[in-house]
Amino acid sequence: MTMLDTPIHLEYTFTPGIAQSRFLRGLAEGRFVGQRCPVCGKVYIPSRGSCPVDGVPTGEDVALPDTGIVTTYCVVNVPFAGQAIEIPYIAAQVLLDGANISFMGLIQEIPATDVRMGMRVQAVWVEPDELGPTLASVKYFKPTGGPDAPYESFEEYL
């Protein structure tokens, strides 16, 4: 015998946790829900239930707008298995207004060459009947046309 196949497949039930469940339920309603740390005041989205700096529960829900800025981004030019979007496209870290942590989002409605750090963006949601407890409820972020945020205003989030 020269080869042995040992297929392994495990199935899991994912438990997002109390805080992240609030974030996911917010997405199903077309809104962003973060949580604030009672010690340092930072707003996390999505919150996993604790402030990673202070190690205390982030109990207080904070409704956040669906506008923010691109802190950093990359242009995806390389095709890969399972790719859902046509290349080139832009994967960006989006910092929502009022949040203290960025998360990954797609940027569209702008040529890849025109995307900038500090560019103001707004979420484009799927149709109301397509909303669900998933980040797929946000189709992508688009430029608002507003003035870019100065580098100093977001350098600590890079």
Partner: peptide, 14 residues
């Protein structure tokens, strides 16, 4: 059912 690992651990560490 509800809590994730971090939420389980936090009160124990506290």
């Amino acid at each position: 059912d509800e809590r994730n690992e971090v939420e389980m651990l936090m009160p124990v560490v506290a």
